[in-house]
Design a binder for these strands. Structure first.
Lengths: 245, 245
DNA sequence: CGATCGGTTGAAGACCTTCAAAAGCAGTGG
DNA sequence: CCACTGCTTTTGAAGGTCTTCAACCGATCG
């Protein structure tokens, strides 16, 4: 019953807009740039759509462009010898895909859209060239790469030091914070990923995720109906992180 | 007995050398730059020494400079509310410290020298300015940030998907590869960190590390004498990663 | 309408942690 | 030089957390 109440805000009418009018402006590359410079950035970016399940790039593929997500969710994963997925991250609008590929000029992971999505494709060579003449662009790009490093450090800490309930709580709080930063409700959202994918990402099994969602529900921390999540006690979830109950 | 046979190569005579003659050239920022440009980079970097146990930077401290390690090992860690260390990484010569601080202009972690060390201190503002006129510098810097992101993705996969024996094997192989890239023996090295620090980093306890070192020793994969490690069967260790025995 | 996929729930057991004791080693000061 | 102290490491035994295995349910889809 709750599914209908949470529109998945893929605003396709905005897809042809320029960076200058993009709602993700503040999170993205143009942040801090002069308007005429933003137009230069606009010129080198192309729009691309991705259907649910479609691959944006493959592991091993030569690296040409970075992708900034305009709408939709992506998962980034590795495939082991046996073809099993190992998820390294979930990405949402305003976040950049492909930064780990700069080093070897080749993608090392796979990025797949978890729902119909739109991205800005920005050729990396052109971006670097442009950034030499626009200090604000260069600086913002460095900040975004730095943010990625920070976020991964946090996930390393999660995996390295937290027990299962803390991991799940941290995961929900992380989603909450990122939704909030994008103007969505921090307490009521729809999960784009399966229990298995969450478990994979958190170093747990799908059964553990299911059990902990049920327990959090019982404890009044959240309300779960399949993939619809409502956080009922944000402070309680946060407390869980500090005091490994 | 083996300790003496492994000189810890902290070549202090090189400390005052310029980037142009630095042995880490290939791993570091100047890679791919013209000689006269390297001299410009040289001008903005300062040398700094760190005694064993000394803090290079604190969490919360304003971010001014990146640090490139010339000699010595560093650990980077967070402190939780109770003051317990949570290690996010070990860094060795040629690697850059502080990149996660660019985003918020403030350090988020602590970096401590695990043995007497020397670093190049490079003011980030000056580095950005310089990189606008030296495309090779800009590009190499992007590659190094990208490498950091890649390495963290790998560690996330390690923590998220591997059992204890695989984690320890992967840790040893990772050190081996990084030592090799710096001209040291890939099969015989001295651990700068305690069992507790290794466990902390790998999401395990010090006892588990100790037990697995003993088991690997019994199985003929390695030879351990306190912190002196000799890898006796590199292929065997690698096989362990693929087939979670 | 059977098949498939995602999710829930229970029971058994593996893996790793926790607790504990003791030995090794390094540095310090008498 | 040796004893003392503190830190690191080893090793054993017990216990907990999470996984594995398995059965079942509901929704979706050709």
């Amino acid at each position: 019953m709750l599914l209908q109440s949470i529109p998945i805000k893929v605003n396709l009418t905005h897809l042809k807009e320029s960076c200058t009018s993009c709602s993700l402006h503040e999170l993205c590359l143009p942040f801090g740039m002069r308007l005429d410079d933003v137009e230069l950035l606009d010129k080198i970016t192309a729009n691309r759509k991705c259907r649910r399940g479609e691959r944006l790039y493959h592991s091993g593929e030569p690296f040409q462009s970075l992708y900034v997500i305009k709408s939709g969710f992506f998962k980034v994963f590795d495939l082991d010898e046996e073809g099993k997925e190992k998820i390294v991250g979930f990405y949402m609008p305003g976040e950049i895909l492909g930064m780990e590929a700069i080093n070897k000029n080749r993608f090392h992971y796979n990025a797949v859209a978890m729902e119909d999505a739109a991205v800005c494709e920005t050729p990396f060579g052109a971006l670097e060239k442009l950034s030499h003449t626009i200090p604000a662009l260069s600086h913002q790009f460095h900040k975004l790469m730095s943010r990625e490093i920070m976020q991964e450090h946090e996930h390393i800490l999660l995996l390295g030091t937290m027990r299962a309930p803390q991991r799940v709580a941290a995961f929900l709080l992380n989603l909450s914070r990122r939704f909030a930063a994008r103007g969505y409700s921090p307490t009521h959202f729809y999960l784009r990923m399966t229990r298995e994918e969450i478990g994979n990402y958190l170093g747990l099994t799908l059964e553990t995720i299911s059990r902990l969602f049920a327990k959090f529900h019982e404890d009044g921390l959240i309300s779960v109906h399949s993939r619809d999540i409502e956080i009922r006690d944000l402070a309680g979830l946060q407390k869980l992180l500090e005091h490994p109950a």
